[in-house]
């Protein structure tokens, strides 16, 4: 597997502090309303609904009253070595070499779902149904994000339209470089406890670059070599162990 680290340009990444995450679900709601995500009558069907940012619950498995609950918000990991990109037959998903963001072209996707089979994070959702918005709710749709049609795969884009918005603003002001807080995805912006930080991992001055150096930083399924750009933080050892598979007796 060849590694495609983009050393030059930007490498946008996210750090989610699980010790701060309260599982309130605001990131999911912010994401859904920012990105025109459709809703099913039965949203309890997590295997069929559209969720760019899904929250998982983990517990330490201890009996009452020593139980601890931790929430893991899971956007697209925007892997540096994405398992999904090389498998896509019609080149509908690509990694932007200048930002590291994995894009998805809905109008080109043929719906073969091979990328979903490739992604171990379940970060991709397939439109099993025609996009549905309850009656009258198409009135809140944002023109910045095109609604998806039935039969295509969609996923978190790190709110790519916000990058576009920030860039055009910067260009209009004659700047080439974006400031750290100019481009933030909706989830990071909405997080009320500021558990989600976002920035350029290639820029040592950005907060995310410093946060990932923490001994508490980890990524999901690091062993598979997907090189996610979404990092997590937790001071709890059991949480860090829960992020990847370990053989019995193996120390984390």
């Amino acid at each position: 597997m060849k590694k495609e680290e983009n050393s030059k340009g930007n490498r946008y990444g996210m750090v989610i502090d699980l010790d701060k995450c309260t599982g309130c679900g605001l990131c999911t709601v912010a994401c859904a309303s920012e990105n025109n995500i459709s809703v099913l009558y039965d949203e309890s069907d997590k295997t069929r609904n559209i969720a760019w940012l899904q929250i998982y619950t983990i517990t330490n498995g201890k009996d009452f009253p020593d139980t601890e609950v931790v929430y893991i918000p899971r956007p697209c990991m925007q892997c540096d070595n994405p398992p999904c990109v090389s498998v896509c037959p019609p080149t509908a998903t690509r990694k932007d070499p200048n930002t590291g963001i994995i894009s998805q072209i809905y109008s080109r996707c043929v719906g073969c779902r091979y990328c979903m089979a490739a992604c171990p994070y379940h970060a991709r959702s397939f439109n099993w149904f025609d996009p549905s918005f309850p009656e009258g709710m198409d009135r809140y749709l944002s023109p910045e994000v095109s609604p998806r049609m039935r039969g295509v795969v969609e996923k978190c884009t790190f709110c790519h339209h916000r990058l576009m918005r920030a860039r055009s603003k910067a260009y209009a002001e004659g700047r080439r470089e974006l400031k750290e807080d100019e481009y933030i995805p909706a989830c990071a912006e909405a997080c009320p406890t500021q558990a989600i930080s976002f920035g350029d991992l290639n820029n040592p001055e950005h907060q995310v670059s410093q946060l990932i150096k923490s001994p508490h930083a980890f990524r999901l399924l690091e062993r598979l070599g997907t090189e996610p750009k979404v990092y997590y933080l937790s001071a709890k050892n059991w949480v860090r162990r829960m992020a990847d598979n370990y053989l019995a007796g193996e120390l984390s």
């Binding site: 069907d45 997590k46 295997t47 069929r48 719906g111 779902r113 091979y114 979903m116 089979a117 379940h122 991709r124 959702s125 397939f126 439109n127 099993w128 149904f129 025609d130 039935r150 039969g151």
Partner: peptide
């Protein structure tokens, strides 16, 4: 659409 099948995000195939 493919909602007629029992496939889902887990069983993409």
């Amino acid at each position: 659409g493919l909602n007629q099948t029992n496939m889902n995000h887990y069983f993409a195939f």
